[in-house]
Write a protein that binds this DNA or RNA. Structure first.
Lengths: 346, 346
DNA sequence: CTGTTAGCGCGTTCAC
DNA sequence: GTGAACGCGCTAACAG
């Protein structure tokens, strides 16, 4: 049996309450007493039983996820993962809720954050929009003692406690590297489709992609970036026009959403191209299987949600997080290592 | 607040003990009473608080991992992950131990399993060797009520409760697909290095690799498989000889261990080759960064260990496991999406 | 067959 | 400053 608070109390010659005060770093303990207790803790190798502690506290953690609304499949997948995690909320003593706001709408995001703070949530996870209103809302949360993590798209430089998502520069590099190798010495230019350069993750991916492509042995021309606003219809039009206008097109990298439009355009005329996109969804999975898409770069939404919950709980309790363990990997999927379809769609 | 056993007792008009008997499916309850309690459980939407239950039981789960000994870096990494998971054993009420046995030694593995059963462990995770002794030992564990999971290399057809590892046929296909695409229309033959065809995972990887290569648009000759017995020295010799004897060698796939020998041989003369190997270790990481290796296929040892623990605990409690959640993914790493080096070495 | 009671390890009033 | 006692949700003795 491992040591309990009783053992420590006995070892240190004090009562349970005093041990508890020392353990939770609360006032009302003399320095000498505290030292005695700490010595006992160290010598016995005590580790607190978190489950029992939570049981005693009977504390619940209301956590809110603020996500962009709309039909972006990745975001809807993220939402589904939050709901799924909510099923386990019982055992984890956490109560999860999702709030959706218009995409790229900084004011709406800030409002949602303020509402959450007012409600007294114990943590906020949000897909950050790069705007001053959001910086300010994060600061207000900080003042209110509510931890904030950014999800998928970061806002470094703000007061957010943690970022949960992939290294987007590395993601772009990975795409460029794969594109270069898959194309080999085949001639032709490459097109890049983005959502909007106004969000950080897209900008970072582009940066990494261009760097990797230019480092390839075979120099290759990259067409000016197409901005599809993550909108399927606009993306379709941009790609269709591009396919018509660029006879020697060799590859396409879509670093944003809007895959549906891209795939629709490729269905018309899209063989022989090297196509690399982000996010494994029902659509991209199908296109990977049928050979229309060559590779999908993915961030696991389920991992991200669970990581956000762990981090927010830890921060709410004032604990430190193991950054290495919370790092989100960039998955490379090709037709052959595609995992079986998940419950929502993956 | 969610309902507790007290609420159920009140709702059903019985005592706590009766509720507990029904919940844990223990005898000594009349059919009518049982039905009443079950109705109350359903109507209140009760879900048991596992943490509290474990606390009350103060049960511990002694789990044993049986791994091949020797300097196979992947296996040592697995062992390190078990030790790391052991640090959390406190909170999970699990006591982890590792036993190493000579690699490919079925009798030693069977003995270790019998010893574990005799010790009264509540679960066994083992890297399976494909032999009758092991089948028999698994059956004995089953009779003793001790759940068994196979790790990394499966033994389907045996009585093992679960397999934790990657789909090795898909892994081979993935390697073949990447090899084919990376080589493109470059001419040359491809060599395959294996440990031993006597273990299932190696056989399955080869099968997948050959299938994928033959499905490529450019037909390419594959040299006869080299069996390095997962031994660095033998692997070195085989590859060095191959490099000398095959002037038009274009690529090498190592589907087993022994990467150290392979890398040593490549250091002598190994530029311009497409090299794909398994398992991300300190060695393969370095070779990936320096460009000697083009891709590493990996199974996350940490995930595997944690999955094994979850599955064994569930089986020990007679619970069902969510197979989809426990599936181990095949990671593809290239230079650009390499995660930061982990605590042990990755 | 069913109910009572005493903890599991910890946090938290309250008194002293 | 410090300590005793109760309860979190559940299980397991022991009565009845």
């Amino acid at each position: 049996m491992r040591p309990t608070v009783h053992d420590i109390a006995a070892e240190a010659g004090v009562s349970l309450a005093t041990v508890d005060r020392v353990l939770n770093d609360r006032p009302g303990v003399r320095g000498v007493t505290k030292a005695k207790v700490e010595a006992a803790i160290a010598s016995l190798g005590y580790v607190r039983d978190v489950a029992a502690a939570n049981l005693a506290k009977s504390r619940v953690y209301p956590l809110v996820f603020i996500l962009p609304e709309g039909d972006n499949p990745f975001m809807r997948g993220l939402e589904a993962e939050v709901r799924r995690a909510g099923l386990h909320s019982a055992i984890e003593r956490t109560r999860l809720s999702v709030v959706t706001v218009p995409a790229f709408d900084a004011a709406a995001l800030a409002d949602a954050m303020d509402a959450a703070i007012a409600e007294g949530v114990s943590g906020i996870a949000a897909v950050a929009v790069d705007a001053l209103e959001v910086f300010a809302a994060i600061d207000r949360a900080r003042e209110a003692g509510v931890p904030v993590v950014t999800l998928v798209s970061d806002l470094s430089g703000s007061g957010r406690d943690h970022f949960i998502g992939v290294d987007n520069i590395a993601a772009g590099r990975t795409a460029g590297s794969l594109m270069g190798r898959f194309l080999g010495n085949r001639p032709g230019r490459v097109a890049v489709l983005a959502g909007s350069m106004r969000v950080r993750d897209h900008g970072e991916r582009l940066e990494g992609f261009l760097a990797a492509m230019s480092a390839m042995p075979n120099a290759r021309a990259i067409l000016p970036v197409l901005e599809g606003q993550d909108d399927p219809d606009l993306s379709f039009k941009l790609i269709a026009d591009c396919l018509a206008a660029v006879p020697d097109l060799a590859g396409i990298y879509n670093l944003g959403a809007g895959n549906r439009g891209l795939l629709k355009a490729l269905a018309v005329r899209g063989t022989g191209l090297c196509v690399i996109v982000h996010e494994l969804t029902g659509e991209t999975r199908g296109a990977l299987e049928s050979g229309v898409i060559d590779a999908v770069l993915n961030q696991d939404a389920g991992h991200e949600v669970r990581s956000a919950i762990r981090v927010l709980r830890a921060k709410a309790d004032g604990l430190s997080v193991n950054a290495a363990q919370e790092r989100i990997r960039l998955d490379i999927f090709i037709k052959d290592n595609l995992p079986p379809a998940g419950p929502d769609e993956e």
